[in-house]
Design a protein around this nucleic acid. Structure first.
Length: 926
RNA sequence: GGGCGAAUAGCUCAGCUGGUUAGAGCGCCUGUCUUACACACAGGAUGUCGGGGGUUCGAAUCCCUCUUCGCCCACCA
């Protein structure tokens, strides 16, 4: 890509991403820039410390949205930084088979052909899904490449691959053998549309306005008396097996043990006493429906009651088990919500509906299809979580794992200490089938066999066995991701030894419990260590109204649109710069130009700095920066090198450290690192406000004037820009690479992506010349302010005098031409303020600028302005005096504060004196 | 209902363990096509740091309280 000429044709004023990005990415890949070499990991005897990031695997059917863009941009910044720091960096990409989600997609597809999954049968359905995934899946991984993701694609993983399926089985069997997986018969969350159970996390609660129905149940032995129950779900009454009152509730104590008659069915059921009934809620009487409510199930169990099921798997009224004659003929086959209305009408007609009141409560919905979840009594597999949670909780408490932002620590602890068992079986077909076989001939416990290999016959009696029909929760396989992608359960696997544990996990807080917590648990259970030391929980992409971007709201932004319009760097820079730690990113889907202006403007600026540099430095050999002698450097050179060092240090602090120095995070370490917006801002400020605004402007003449000093300026410029490109590369990889490869002296076949991260120089002494440039800069800024204040035309060269301490005088005289160019002001050294009307500015250190105003301004107006300025200054001075006169302040404030205040006071009083003199000189003594 | 967090410029947010004149980006105002960049340059304005109390020589920063938002969790039918 090296170029010999820099005509406008191949170096246009605006960076053209379309012309460069794809080609650069291809060359990175070709050169193997992103492929990690496990043998170089110091953990297995190599020469580099490893650094690992695990990509949260997107669903195999997913298409890139801004959330993915944001998530992967963060990871890519980190991995590119680590790579440049000389670590053996591995970013493992991959996809999730996404059980329910993918099955739903295929079922929808089938539906358009008029087919249901049962029409195909399990085997055919799975085959079809597999084919669908092979044909259309993985689009997102390709899209990630176009935003620059430097993942190691040679290690792309898939939760449903043969290798990872082995890991899933191994984990299941080991947990089963340890008694941490068990089969339970209980009420779980059931989605009547997906026809599967859901975990607690998958059943999302949503605040809903419903109704609380008060129904009177007459006493069996005295139909004139009745007790009233309150329920939100009258349709479940056919499954009632009792009504419960609190044993301490005096209203009902006398009735305990009697029967009431279940309305409509005319079925006698007992009144029982149970603490579960809350006297303060509703009527204090609760109907007990063990098959359709998790709490009622527990109550039923305590009282040894049956659990008739009256709603089937589709959410339709029907007698399923143990419920003969319970569902009236007229309601059979009726949907639960329709049935609710009919039951209410029936009760009303029978005079049993006492009243209906509106009621706020939470209703759980399926996280995949939003259907109202139905509590359902069934057999499911569960993971016993308490023992697994213990080390995972300790990991965060001891600092082995840090959560950022820290506010999530409390949430994590709360969840971990109140953890409930995890339902891992799903009644769908797409996923890892539960590796359990049943033998009809053997007696418990030998009739249930968990096996790492497929069984065709019972290992105990040799007769036929059948495999469990269920598949595992997708998140079960995800929880193994940090190990399974590296070769576990083969503990000798090179990648596993070289890269486990990894370093940072970057994800959205929504899946803290779905995924992150469970990965930590599994890490400890199977590897004896947490899978990473940092969890970076980033914010959400929102529209200008603060709504989360989503497909259903249609307020999303397609990152590919941004890439096509403005380039990947624009997308990345905007997202990274706009994202404080854990803060949401706000973008306007209706105005991409405005939303991404930050990134686009920056990319253009950077491009133009490069353009300037190449046009002015040219292709001729540039002196090696390392060969420059310190005394060859000009003031601007010394200044920009100092700023560069500061920028490098600040960037390091913002993004690092790589990992805790002593295994656990210390207080002081937690204050830095992963502040990517600070990193971006620091780099931007350096490149734009320091390098471009000042250094470049300052050296223009030097670059054009042949001689030794020209060579120095060229060398420093190339060096500083090279370093700046390195700092910026993790954020804007494409434009930085494109420019870096064009720098004079670039060696063909080398990449910025794999070059080294800058180091700040170890300077022990303060460079006086840098300070001198700072004074020049202040003078220029002051002159510009004066010019603007007095509305002096930009093109007009004006004269001014400078009164400075003797040590500055020669230096200033040297730089008069530079100041003249930057401030359009011809300075002359003076010993004191010349007579006549003038604007007067005092800079830090007592340097004074005097700008004769004759012929430039309205003297009368200037007098008024000076007067107010003087009044303000004197007011401020008075309060400063008061503070310094306050013994408490002087005694207890740190000395540097007191000193600073004193310096300020002295400066201000000098300035006040000068102002007064100027005022008097200008207006004559009033 | 329990827990956690936030409130700073028009908008989105920085402001670490209290200490010079509270910052950035975008937006806004004025001027400029100054031979890298008008996606730019130069200059500028804007804050009772949510309200109230307290600690202190000194509070955006620490404590209490109120208000308003947000998030997580939860079996009150």
């Amino acid at each position: 890509m090296s170029i010999s000429s820099t005509s406008d044709q191949d170096f246009p004023a605006h960076y053209d991403p379309a012309a460069t990005e794809a080609a650069i990415y291809a060359r990175w890949q070709q050169a193997g820039c992103f492929t990690a070499d496990a043998s170089r990991s110091s953990r297995i005897g190599g020469d580099r410390d490893p650094y690992g990031i695990l990509m949260p695997p997107p669903n195999v059917t997913a298409i890139l949205h801004v959330g993915h863009g944001l998530n992967n941009a963060v990871q890519d910044v980190l991995i590119r930084w680590a790579r440049m720091k000389g670590l053996e960096a591995l970013w493992v990409p991959g996809m999730d088979h996404a059980g329910i989600a993918t099955q739903n997609v295929v079922e929808k597809q089938l539906a358009t052909e008029g087919l249901a999954r049962n029409d195909l049968g399990r085997e055919k359905f799975v085959e079809r899904t597999k084919a669908f995934v092979e044909q259309t899946g993985g689009v997102i991984l390709q899209q990630l490449k176009s935003i620059g993701a430097s993942a190691d694609w040679s290690r792309t993983a898939y939760t449903f691959s043969p290798e990872l399926s082995v890991a899933v089985r191994e984990a299941f069997v080991r947990l089963y053998e340890r008694g941490l997986i068990y089969r339970g018969h209980r009420v779980i969350h059931w989605c009547p549309r997906c026809l599967t159970s859901l975990s607690d996390e998958e059943a999302e609660a949503r605040e809903t306005t419903g109704a609380l129905y008060h129904i009177s149940y007459p006493l069996a032995d005295d139909p004139t008396r009745s007790i009233t129950v309150a329920t939100t779900r009258p349709e479940t009454m056919f499954g009632d097996v009792a009504v419960a009152v609190n044993p301490a509730d005096e209203r009902y104590v006398a009735l305990i043990g009697k029967n009431v008659v279940l309305p409509i069915l005319q079925l006698p059921i007992p009144i029982i006493a149970d603490d579960y009934a809350d006297p303060a809620f509703g009527t204090g009487v609760v109907k007990i429906t063990p098959a359709h409510d998790a709490n009622d199930f527990e109550v039923g169990r305590r009282h040894d009651l049956p659990a008739p099921i009256v709603i089937d798997e589709h959410g339709v009224m029907g007698e399923v088990a143990d419920a003969a004659g319970r569902v009236p003929q007229a309601l059979r086959g009726i949907d639960r919500f329709e049935a609710r209305e009919r039951v209410v009408a029936m009760l009303d007609a029978a005079g049993r509906l006492v009243k209906t009141e509106t009621h706020q409560h939470n209703v759980r919905h399926c996280y995949r299809c939003d259907t109202v979840v139905e509590p359902r009594l069934s057999d499911q597999w569960f993971v016993r979580m308490a023992p697994l949670a213990e080390p995972a909780l300790a990991a965060v408490r001891t600092g082995r794992v840090r959560l950022l932002p820290e506010k999530w620590v409390g949430v994590y602890e709360h969840w971990m200490t109140n953890i409930r068992d995890w339902n891992i079986s799903r009644q769908i077909w797409w996923g890892h089938r539960v590796p359990v076989w049943y033998c009809k001939e053997c007696d418990p416990p030998q009739d249930v066999i968990a096996s790492r290999v497929d069984l065709t016959e019972c290992p105990f009696c040799g007769c036929d066995v059948v495999q469990d029909e269920d598949v595992l929760d997708t998140w079960f396989s995800s929880s193994l991701w940090p190990m399974s992608t590296l070769g576990w359960p083969n503990e000798e696997a090179t990648d596993l030894r070289a890269f486990y544990p990894s370093d940072v996990l970057v994800t959205a807080p929504e899946i803290l419990f779905f995924w992150v917590a469970r990965m930590i648990m599994m890490g400890y259970e199977f590897m004896g260590d947490a899978p990473f030391h940092s969890v970076y929980l980033h914010g959400t992409a929102r529209d200008t109204q603060g709504r989360k971007m989503s497909k259903s709201l249609g307020n999303g932004i397609d990152p590919m649109d941004v890439v096509h319009l403005y380039g990947a760097d624009t997308l990345r820079y905007t997202l990274i710069a706009g994202m404080g730690l854990g803060a949401d990113v706000f973008l306007d889907p209706n105005d991409l130009g405005k939303s991404f202006a930050t990134g686009r403007n920056f990319a253009t600026k950077l491009w133009n700095i490069g353009r300037f540099l190449l046009n002015n430095v040219g292709d001729d050999t540039v002196r090696a920066f390392a060969d420059l002698k310190p005394d060859e450097l000009g003031r601007a050179d010394a200044w920009i090198l100092e700023k560069l060092d500061a920028a490098i240090r600040e960037c390091d602090r913002a993004i690092g450290p790589v990992r805790p120095a002593h295994g656990v995070w210390l207080e002081e370490e937690l204050a830095s690192g992963l502040r990517l917006n600070e990193f971006a801002e620091t780099a931007r400020r350096f490149v734009w406000n320091e390098l471009a605004d000042w250094y470049l402007e300052a050296i223009k003449t030097r670059l054009l004037t042949p001689g030794d000093d020209q060579q120095v300026a060229r060398s420093v410029l190339v060096h500083v820009f090279d370093q700046a490109l390195r700092l910026l590369h993790p954020i804007v990889p494409f434009v930085s690479e494109a420019l870096w490869q064009r720098l004079p002296g670039h060696v063909d076949g080398t990449f910025l992506a794999t070059s080294s991260w800058p180091d700040a120089r170890r300077q022990t002494t303060v460079d006086v010349r840098a300070g001198e440039f700072e004074l020049i800069k202040e003078i220029v800024e002051a002159m510009r302010r004066v010019r603007s204040e007095y509305a002096i035309p930009p093109g007009k060269m004006i004269d001014a005098f400078v009164v400075a301490a003797p040590i500055w005088r020669q230096m200033l005289a040297d730089e008069f031409s530079l100041i003249a160019r930057l401030a359009r002001t011809q300075l002359t050294l003076a010993d004191a303020a010349p007579a006549g009307a003038a604007a007067n500015v005092v800079l830090a250190g007592g340097t004074e600028l005097i700008v004769p105003l004759a012929g430039l301004i309205d003297v009368k107006k200037e007098c008024e302005r000076l007067q107010t300025e003087l009044a303000n200054l004197e007011k401020q001075l008075a309060s400063l005096e008061a503070r310094l006169g306050n013994p408490g302040f002087v005694d207890r404030a740190p000395s540097h504060v007191v000193d600073a205040e004193r310096v300020k006071r002295d400066e201000w009083s000098t300035r006040a004196g000068l102002l007064r003199a100027r005022f008097e000189g200008l207006c004559g003594k009033a």
